[in-house]
Nucleic acid binder design. Structure first.
Lengths: 333, 333
DNA sequence: CGCAAGATTGAAAACGCTTTCACATCAAAG
DNA sequence: CTTTGATGTGAAAGCGTTTTCAATCTTGCG
């Protein structure tokens, strides 16, 4: 009992016009006499005809779907971007093929290839380690690729981000202004461009501006997980830190809770400022001060930029920088 | 400078075989002489041929992509399921077209239609208000549909869930066992089957078993948002509740924080137990006691079930119920 | 009324692959 | 050597659209 499918041919026959005409009305081509259009529309309605997007994709070489590579949907930072991406994608009639990469280079390359095989019209990439191999795949791709909330050391791809260096510098400066001299820098892998080339740079800049010397014993490279943060307290104490800048909200929540559990009170004895301003910052107690980022917008703008690229519209600025801010909550004085 | 694409025809020509043969080696069909296979493989490699999945989809009537309808990726409960879905999808070589529905009936129907137009091989639906119209769409769909972490009053679709009635009953019973008599039931819209037909039923059952009479003043119908929970304290106090069962973790975090902010200490003065065991339960302080659910597995099993359905394998049980548990943390005594 | 310029339409060729069916080949058996 | 049953292979017909190009209608105008 395979369900029967109605094709454009059936409609053409029933309406006694050609497939071409049906195609025209379906696609809103204006070169159709109103009377014919009406007739065709009626048949379409009567037969409940629904165009087959795959056939259309083959014939037109456009699939109206874009690939989205995300480290992990479960991470609120990225899912917030994804939400922005999907909303504007829908607005422009695109669909999203979403795949988790775990920031695993091999998987990323593989995923990229299957996306290209599926003939996506464009790709949005999230992830902060653009390997040479990956960059090579981007280049060979006929579909435009834009990075969202993600940086590439060689700035070769269109991207949407905030000014991480300035944001981190400002965040760290606020810590310094509160009298802290030993400020920990806590983040994920230093292999990630965003940590190594941006955040750390901002951190160093703030220190330098304040005349504090940089000490790599205060740099903690760890996982972006709650657990990792939670178990950091002893190390933080050992290093004599009195405050910390943290590169991820979940990680920061871990750090804070680990501190609190160890009897260190935040922000009195230890200040914490985090990076992403996800809703986690409001859930934990004390609420976390954070760099603020227009998460949804980063995704939305990235997708919007991608639509332009896919349309071959020329864009004035390929790498867009959105504004950031600083939100003081209760994890800092 | 359109990038040139290599087709199966090019490979056939270069290898001096027919397209059929190339197709066979690409698809691992065993009826190819090893020598020919080798020859073809070499050409494929040399020309860097990548099969066009759209053309393949048109010819074979299989797209190896499934649609996933999710209320909001940003909600950790659902994104956890989505992660499970994507992982097993990848395992079985499927891709995921992900769309947010906001549990908006109209949008759901529309999305469903575009998914069907894209010829997805199957659909995973998350959302708890299956309207008649939606159910009708499911029925007319030639692709199988399975519900993940979502229930339909008419149990007509394959689905993967836990036993919500029993789980809630048990959770509420634990609250009763701690001496509470006035237990609030806090959840999202009562229009949602899961709240109305399952959770509330479990709640009532627990009350009844304990000989406590049901009082609808203790039922709080609200949004699934942190904010909604946070502002609930006055109402909770007014109703004289000393404990609450909450249907969503983010909402529960709000409730708890609202309580705490109002000077009510949890769990001493007020106990809270939540439903989804997402990572939020561990982030907040006190950590939240919760019904535990195998979130990732619900998604994974749903996807696995879908693969079987797509293959027309016959499955013994269309509606699978996964085990739940109760995790005592610090928001209950 | 005649004609050029649009405005509408249709025929048919792609699009890049899978799949059916028939044909050719080959090794083993008689 | 034939015969036979596998085994390998190719030709060609789809799959359901879009799109090009030419053909056919309509108009407005002189």
């Amino acid at each position: 009992m395979e369900k029967q499918t109605v094709t454009i041919y059936d409609v053409a026959r029933e309406a006694s016009v050609s497939m071409a005409t049906v195609s025209r009305v379906v696609n809103g081509n204006p070169n159709v006499k109103p009377a014919t259009r009406k007739k065709v529309l009626e048949v379409i309605d009567r037969l409940d005809y629904r165009p087959n997007a795959v056939a259309r994709g083959l014939a037109s070489k456009k699939t109206t779907t874009v690939g989205v590579i995300i480290p992990d949907v479960t991470n609120i930072y990225f899912s917030s971007l994804a939400r922005g991406i999907d909303d504007v994608a829908m607005m422009y009639k695109y669909n999203i093929i979403l795949t988790n990469s775990d920031e695993n280079g091999g998987k990323e390359v593989q995923v990229l290839n299957t996306l290209m095989a599926k003939q996506v019209d464009g790709i949005i990439f999230m992830g902060n380690q653009v390997t040479d191999e990956l960059r090579e795949e981007f280049r060979r791709s006929k579909a435009p690729v834009v990075l969202a909330g993600s940086v590439d050391a060689q700035k070769t791809q269109p991207s949407v981000n905030i000014d991480y260096v300035a944001a981190v510098a400002e965040a760290v400066k606020s810590l310094i202004d509160h009298g802290n001299r030993k400020i920990a820098f806590v983040s994920g892998s230093m292999d990630q461009t965003i940590n190594h080339d941006y955040r750390l740079k901002g951190y160093k800049k703030a220190l330098k501006d304040a005349g504090i010397s940089y000490d790599d014993k205060l740099v903690f490279e760890t996982d972006y997980t709650y657990k990792a943060g939670q178990s950091l307290e002893p190390a933080l104490a050992a290093a004599g830190a009195t405050a910390a800048f943290v590169g991820d909200d979940e990680l920061a929540a871990g750090v804070m809770n680990g501190l609190t559990d160890a009897g260190v009170s935040v922000p009195e004895d230890f200040e914490v400022i985090t990076s992403n301003d996800t809703k986690l910052t409001e859930l934990v107690r004390p609420k976390m001060s954070s760099i603020t980022q227009p998460l949804y917008d980063i995704g939305a703008v990235a997708m919007r930029l991608l639509t332009k690229l896919m349309n071959n519209e020329n864009v004035d600025e390929n790498t867009v920088i959105l504004p950031y801010g600083l939100m003081k909550r209760s994890s800092t004085k």
